[in-house]
Write a protein that binds this DNA or RNA. Structure first.
Lengths: 98, 98
DNA sequence: CCTATGGTTCGATTTGATTCGAACCATATC
DNA sequence: GATATGGTTCGAATCAAATCGAACCATAGG
């Protein structure tokens, strides 16, 4: 398994962020992580098939929405609030509260 | 031709806004209208076929991004900045500046 | 080593959005 | 009325994203 690639803060693109958030499942993931908690993938989307879920994890990670961390067999996800707030102030709150 | 239907401020939905903005052509339209100017459709997208352009006009209007006004043969468009800023503070600036 | 669990990858299918041409509608001008 | 212009609507084609099963990889625990 290759290393998890995340764009750095300066590499965040609004087009990518919009694309990542324009999906009901991924929007729900963002709202689930809104309180800053770090959760495993299975905790967030237990009902979805593994391959579909994995697809969404990748979109969220590569487009800079979440940071993923491997620990043992689990993959933990955390919302990149600081980075997103710094680059696109207000955006994340609008999405979460909206 | 039926009347142009716009959602009111309270009817703006973040999911719809994200879907409307997640397209390069529509993102360009928003940025073109960013200074508050009111422009005709043909001024904004002169190169695109009428039917494709009309499709994007409808998405932008129905999802609350722009207000459209008919005058004579022309359709004028204006960014709904006040409404979008009120409902989703920071969102529009992030998209325009991003 | 063996087994179970958590995720990824691949290929194929399905679904939804975009695109376009053609026909049409509405308004302005002659 | 005739003609030109600005947009809409419809249906069909095209293209991208989402979905899924199956096979695979990695780690934890016996």
């Amino acid at each position: 398994m290759e290393e998890l690639e995340h764009p750095d803060r300066a590499g965040l693109r609004i087009e990518a962020v919009l694309a990542a958030l324009d999906h009901p499942v991924r929007l729900r993931v963002v709202r689930t992580l809104a309180d800053g908690e770090e959760l495993t993938c299975r905790q967030i989307l237990p009902e979805m098939t593994k391959s579909s879920a994995s697809h969404h994890w990748r979109v969220l990670r590569e487009n800079g929405i979440v940071e993923q961390r491997k620990q043992g067999r689990n993959l933990y996800m955390r919302l990149r609030r600081a980075d997103l707030d710094a680059r696109f102030p207000g955006m994340l709150d609008a999405v979460i509260d909206g």
